[in-house]
Design a protein around this nucleic acid. Structure first.
Lengths: 134, 134
DNA sequence: CTTGACCCTGTACTATGGTACAGGGTTTAT
DNA sequence: ATAAACCCTGTACCATAGTACAGGGTCAAG
């Protein structure tokens, strides 16, 4: 399948300016241009933009994602120190999961303890986040 | 205990400009000032700044944190719609944990499959992130 | 054959979350 | 009593991740 920029943007649920921005930042390859100079994308770019968005949601920065995409692109420069980079990310992700589980408990307590919307501001539970977060 | 701005910043491991920035943004209360106009903080601010940093690491924005702190401050304005806000955040957090678990698997596969650092850029596993991320 | 919906480039602007001065006062150690 | 190491305000600047707009070309329908 072939897509013009707005179609790609629509499928990936991003602004088309974002697509051009990713191109400037070399996060996606320079696409084929038709006779009018329009950018024409294939399915691999759909996947790639979706991947970028996914990773971003999970707290990876665009420069980290750029590095990870070095593997996809088989770019030996960007793959320098990739092993260590992946190891560090593993630890980050581990920690993030644990912290999020804690937050999950706190949010859940927050609701259980104050089922009445009006009472929330007096709820003592939020203090636990502070107490446990050190 | 009482702390001057640099002490607070040191304990919380943030820049002292960040502390003043949080004050401007009303994320921390305006502190007591001594005779020289110096900001003097107590332990509650240590907790509060730590909480802010913790939540930030977990993907909450400062404006979301501001809202959550409305409970601590018993501010009925900021607590408007808090119940719904917390419910939404619960779902976000749930989703984030699941996605991070997936990333964890991918990162782990990435290392297992290519124990030689030089081979990483040829590793086929990263494609899975793309394939599974839709 | 023109109107509207696209596309292009280039540049400027935005929000978020800080960070870095400049220009001045205070405190502390020698 | 003076230098180093703090503190103050105010403003400017930075990176990240976009978003908007000006000024112009292209294409498809009526």
């Amino acid at each position: 399948m072939e897509y013009k920029i707005s179609e790609l943007a629509g499928i990936c649920n991003v602004n088309k300016e974002t697509i051009r921005y990713y191109e400037r930042k070399s996060l996606i390859p320079k696409p084929y241009r038709n006779n009018s100079g329009y950018r024409i994308y294939g399915d691999s770019t759909v996947k790639r933009v979706s991947f970028i968005k996914k990773m971003q949601d999970l707290g990876f920065s665009l420069s980290e994602i750029y590095k990870l995409l070095g593997i996809v692109d088989k770019d030996s420069d960007r793959c320098q120190d990739m092993y260590q980079f992946v190891s560090e990310k593993q630890m980050d992700v581990e920690k993030k999961i644990n912290d999020l589980k804690h937050i999950q408990k706190v949010l859940s307590n927050l609701k259980d303890c104050c089922p009445n919307e009006r009472d929330l501001y007096a709820c003592p539970i939020i203090e636990n986040v502070l107490d446990d977060s050190g």
